[in-house]
Amino acid sequence: MLEHLELFFKSIFIDNMVFAVFLGMCSYLAVSKKVSTAVGLGAAVIFVLAVTVPLNWLLDQYLLKEGALVWLGPEYADYNLSFLSFIMFIATIATMVQLVEIVVEKFSPSLYNSLGIFLPLIAVNCAILGGSLFMQAREIPTLGLALNYGISSGIGWFLAILAIAAIREKIRYSNVPAPLRGLGITFIITGLMGIGFQSFGGMLTGDNEPPEGEQPTTAEQTKEKELIKKEIEEDDKAVSYNEVVKE
């Protein structure tokens, strides 16, 4: 239960799809002019992530991973098809999006009317593929956690697009320098919001280290860690240097 809760808050606030790893930026920038459309797209993203991440988890677990084919018989134990994951994941996503569109259209026309136009857009939204790829890279252990990861990172994305849409509706009344209007100021606001979200970073890492495999994998974060390590080394060096001087 605790790990579910931890993953939930982590995916929404700390590893936020938009602010920490920049996934789904294209539609984030293109569809955030009005709050109502932003809500529609955000809901569609949550929905599709909740479907595709667990599905791709199953694919990864029983088809792609090293030794995943062992259920076919012991002679398949050495197979490692993980190089196929890109093509499998994207094919699953594209098909699922189509399928979801058909099903929703059939059974809930009102939901279709509000989500429908966004669904095709979503097949090529990097947040969706990114969700599956991060799920694989972080080696999420169970199906339940994969579902949790899909939903919570979707919610994180939803929050981000909702916030920027609200800000963009207001910023129309502000006097932004002409060359920055539109895209430019949106980038800078997103950057500032991202800095705000960075402050969630310490929230869950208070006393216990994150378990193996859940370590942040983005370039930035590794870099940050290296930087910290370097600083520590520098401090050590400075200390030893001081000692040498004293001697």
Binding site: F19, I188, T190, E224
Partner: peptide, 29 residues
């Protein structure tokens, strides 16, 4: 500059510079 959000701000500034040099690219509204 190392943290992720800085990239967004750098892009914002690139857009600013580019559009100040070429005023035809400025967005309405």
């Amino acid at each position: 500059m190392i943290i992720p959000p800085a990239a967004l701000i750098v892009v914002g500034i690139i857009i600013w510079v580019q559009r100040s040099r070429n005023r035809a690219l400025i967005e309405e509204a």
